[in-house]
Amino acid sequence: MTRISVSVDGTEAVDEIEPRTLLVQYLREQRGRTGTPVGCDTSNCGACTVLVDGRAVKSCALLAVQADGAEVTTIQGLANGELHPMQKAFHEHHALQCGYCTPGMIMAAVDLVGEVADPSEQQVREGLEGNLCRCTGYQNIVAAVRDAAAEMRGAS
């Protein structure tokens, strides 16, 4: 067992974990952050995307020990009293149906907009290539991300 110290959605904790534990397993099974789901076992679908020290990471592609000392933000920690503009935009644009890809999609989109403040349609489409959605055909996701980007530009 290995000891790690991780801040998850603003809560610090020190945990003993098996070294082989994936970050997503740690989040779901030891920290109870089940808002982050698992959609595949080959790091392709992006459903488990979280922010580690502010950058989007597929939490199935990182060992929990690699997050030692890091600050992890999941979909459950994104809203700060009120919904994040990205969450609002997903709702407003009907950018989700079953909602399973949504946590990862939103976290990846937050990271994307952090990189490119005013992304074109093509930049959004390419920026979210690592996140699969099977319900929406992506059109409303693209609209939501661009709209949220505008909102976030205005707010800053």
């Binding site: 698992v38 709702h91 009907h94």
Partner: peptide, 21 residues
């Protein structure tokens, strides 16, 4: 109408079967 379903899905307050412990 915007969906009532969204509130818990966009905040991760979900009940996927695998979440139930």
């Amino acid at each position: 109408r915007r969906r009532k379903e969204d509130a818990h899905l966009i905040t991760g307050q979900t009940t996927w079967t695998d979440n139930i412990q």
